[in-house]
Design a protein around this nucleic acid. Sequence first.
DNA 1: AAAACGGGGGT
DNA 2: ACCCCAGTTTT
Length: 350
Amino acid sequence: MKFSKKLIIWYLEHQRNMPWRQTKDPYSIWLSEIILQQTRVSQGLPYYLAFKTAFPTVFELAAATEEEVLKLWQGLGYYSRARNLHYTAQYIVRELNGVFPKTYDQLLKLKGVGDYTASAIASICYNEVVPVIDGNVYRVLSRVFGLDTPINSSPALKEYKSLASQLIDVSRPATFNQAMMEFGAIQCKPQSPDCTICPFADRCFALQHAKVSELPVKLKKTKIKKRYFNYFVVRLPDNTLLIQQRKNVGIWEGLYEFPLIESNKLMEPEALEKEEAFSHLVRNKSFSLTRYKEAPIVHKLSHQHLYTRFYVLDICEAPNLKVDQSLIPVATIRDYPVPVLIGNFIESFF
DNA sequence: AAAACGGGGGT
DNA sequence: ACCCCAGTTTT
């Protein structure tokens, strides 16, 4: 039986029931695809539901502020997705009268929409015959057809897309694409898939050559860097708090945090007090500085480990605020979008 | 071509 | 500790 036919039969039997499968509304599909980039369904699902409730259509999303969008995105990671989501919503409303582009080529021009997402929206919403290539599809094709080009190398996308283009069911591209991804997620999963119940066991290259655990091939990633963050929870007598918004600083762009002194190694309070950034906060007045916890909190990101300490700094007079800094009532701290690292501290401290 | 960009969950 | 996740953008 043809690959696509057998795949779709498997899909109709085994697919999970998910909210974005009940619609072809491009806004809903776009939203779900952005949320699910590099994100498991189990993690993204509650965010999808929350966004649909807060912003039922692209018009409500466009009418929101970027800060509101980031707040709802808090905890999901890769925050450029949220900023691009908001930017694109405003673009679609203001420039396209709220109507989504309808082709792969046009969709690809949207911020935050790359090859995968353009293919997904075009095929699912408009039945355009373009294959999606995501992590699941790479794995399925690599194993079943024995492709060993590293999936994170330059030529990979072209090669895998070429093969997928030959396999796609031209009469049912939407179903085929979702079936490929669902098959990779449920059956042809990364570790120890149960090949005894696989519909392609009779033809799978990896299974027949005992290479299921070797495929797909992936180039090793860059090593993890250590960074040292010293945060100052600056409190004033009027029960206000000093926070600042991250801008052009790599991770967490657009989110809020406390004043930060980054160092090359773990630092003691006496050394921190000598920093210019610290002097600026206390303005040579009296202050009280206490470390919140002795052991550094290690916050792990994909590519860096953040060794973090929080200091509570009570001062008697407001410092001169830098750009991006503001004094806020303590009670309103939870209204601001913050990284998980900061959010965890807020929950345990306040 | 590589690196940057989060956080959660599995082994 | 290392891998993966309905990837995209920047360097």
